[in-house]
Design a protein around this nucleic acid. Structure first.
Lengths: 348, 348
DNA sequence: AGCGACACAGCAAGCGCTTTCTATGCATAA
DNA sequence: TTATGCATAGAAAGCGCTTGCTGTGTCGCT
């Protein structure tokens, strides 16, 4: 019922080996033979059996992309960029590879399971995007898995994720610390001294790094931080909304709110607006990432632009072996401060 | 070097067949034997060879999800919902399946190629999301492909996409026409009579359906449409910005702008604002989809909410055979009008 | 004319797993 | 005790493809 290589071979009056070689094009085949084979393929509407081919050749054309949340443009943009370089259909590369995006939902277990699944499929490469979880046990487990993948010949690239030493993985890390510092310095420069900070989930590297940058800036300016000024939440709008109300409750005299990312900042804006406060007249707001929608906030969001698409594209090329990995296998990708309407001098 | 089933068998002092059966758990194996095998698996850190298993069993655990633009939350939300039901790691289903999200970028060729790739992998199921291209040739090609997939035992589900007759595919279609009509009726009810419409790409079904709904509403209210009031563009913010300027140029007396979707509407808002017009004081704006960010627009966007997550989840369940397909294999999913601040009575 | 070299094509041995069919052992029934 | 069955394990035949090696003609060279 299903057409196999042998059927094509029979029809083209050649051996299966020849058909395989025509299809893979890595062995000399006479033009006339090739044509005959191609014709047979076409007539029989033959479709290669991927698993069989992967088994025999001991390689597959699957490339895995792990993301924390596929509904978040932060990951969508990176995934899209990676995929376009992987050379899925229409991509720039030659061979047709199946780029598979896996949604971990931020769960460490799922991350591990997906890695195993990918290992099982003998994936050609794997790109992990976004921050990692700090938990030592999980970190070790992931590192072990990555090492194993690398040993099996799978190229591993981390995009926007801290390096994983001793795993052979190439890392393109975002300078979250630097970006956070710069952002807060901007606010301090405007004269703010009482800054609320809405951090992401406590256990994520991204959260910690951005917060550290923020604190470094405060320290550098001799501003003593009040513990009440930091609230942890999720990386979404609702969390930003709630956290802002909480911050306002704790200290109504805050003149600025720095958010873990743009979605959170949007929620913060909504909460401030609902509380009758003007932005930036009463309170300045800052985000992080510079996702497309942040320019449409009113006022437009001051934030740190992360070159998501560029980093993703580069990660994709490295994963495909079409670009040299950075020296030492680690590169830091810097963000750029985008000053817009949501930040201004504090009142008074 | 790589551990195989045979290695595990040797270590556990059983035959490969037994190991396979323990791993697949569909054949009686004595508890003590099972334990021994599991122990060996663990000790050797054995990982099943996916391709080999797929080849032998003639089925794979891959499920494909095709999206037009992975960076667009519209698709991200659906994909996430589908995936959670597919029962990837952590999903509700039992078996671990690899949900693979494929980004077609809206290109018909890529769509076809991805389908072939999935066919090649003998995917267990395929879910196609979002509008289709109207081109007859391509439509036929996709239909043929879908038919073939179905014949090969791959379950095919369309989510937010018009039905594909004679292909055996189950379709969950969004009522874009109805939503469009309702939206425009709302605007007409407010007293608007000169409505600009920013449509999506001409060749997409979604574009046509929404536009038809809009026009049906106009016709029902006896409003004669000026051809200058419709502009086609892409489904993104920038396109909305440019199209709005164009509309304003063509007819500065418009009192409302209806956008193809929320991103376009956001661009429209920006253009209006930049043109010194107030929303909704001077011009009302309406979007479509009700993506999360549309509530954060200022003023919040009047739009049609599409139950993206619900539809995706349902599509996922149907794809996994965990929910009965709708009668006739076709179901229409309705949107809900969300009236918010961006629409109001026209001036004068 | 004779010989090596070359360009192709085919043979056949797997790749690592699943699964049918067949053995074995032991408990139960007669 | 012998027959009957059930529970469980193993042997072995593929699944459809790739690829190293082995032919076989055809050239070009001396």
């Amino acid at each position: 019922m299903t057409v196999t290589l042998a059927d094509v071979a029979a029809r083209a009056q050649v051996s299966p080996a020849t058909v395989s070689r025509v299809l893979n094009g890595n062995y000399p085949v006479a033009a006339s033979t090739r044509e005959r084979v191609l014709k047979a393929v076409d007539e029989l509407d033959y479709v290669l059996n991927g698993p069989a081919s992967a088994l025999a050749a001991a390689t597959s054309d699957l490339v895995g992309i792990l993301v924390n949340d596929i509904a978040d443009p932060f990951f969508g943009i990176m995934a899209g960029a990676i995929q376009s370089e992987i050379g899925g259909p229409g991509g720039r590369a030659g061979g047709e590879r199946l780029a598979v995006v896996c949604n971990t939902g931020g769960s460490p277990e799922r991350e591990l399971t997906y890695l195993t699944l990918l290992q099982r499929q003998r994936a050609a490469a794997v790109v992990l995007t976004g921050g990692a979880v700090e938990d030592a046990v999980h970190k070790a487990a992931v590192a072990a898995k990555l090492r194993k993948l690398a040993e099996a010949g799978t190229r591993v690239v981390l995009c926007g994720r801290p390096p994983a030493p001793e795993t052979g993985a190439v890392a393109l890390t975002f300078d979250n610390r630097g970006g956070g510092r710069e952002l807060t310095e901007h606010l301090l420069g405007l004269g703010h001294r009482r800054l609320g900070y809405i951090a992401g989930p406590e256990e994520r590297t991204t959260t910690r790094h951005r917060l550290e940058g923020h604190r470094a800036a405060l320290a550098a300016h001799g501003v003593e931080e009040d513990p009440r000024w930091t609230v942890h939440g999720r990386y979404d709008r609702q969390s930003g909304y709630e956290a802002t109300l909480e911050l306002l409750r704790r200290d109504p005299t805050l003149t600025a709110v720095v958010a873990a990312n743009d979605s959170v900042a949007l929620g913060a804006c909504a909460a401030l607006r609902d509380s009758g406060l003007r932005i930036p007249g009463d309170v300045s707001v800052a985000g992080f990432d510079d996702l497309p929608f942040s320019i449409d906030a009113v006022p437009a969001l001051t934030t740190v632009r992360l070159p998501l698409a560029e980093a993703g594209a580069r990660a994709g090329r490295i994963a495909m072996g079409r670009e040299e990995p950075p020296p030492g296998g680690i590169a830091t990708v810097r963000g750029e401060l985008m000053v817009r309407g949501s930040s201004g001098a504090p009142r008074g």
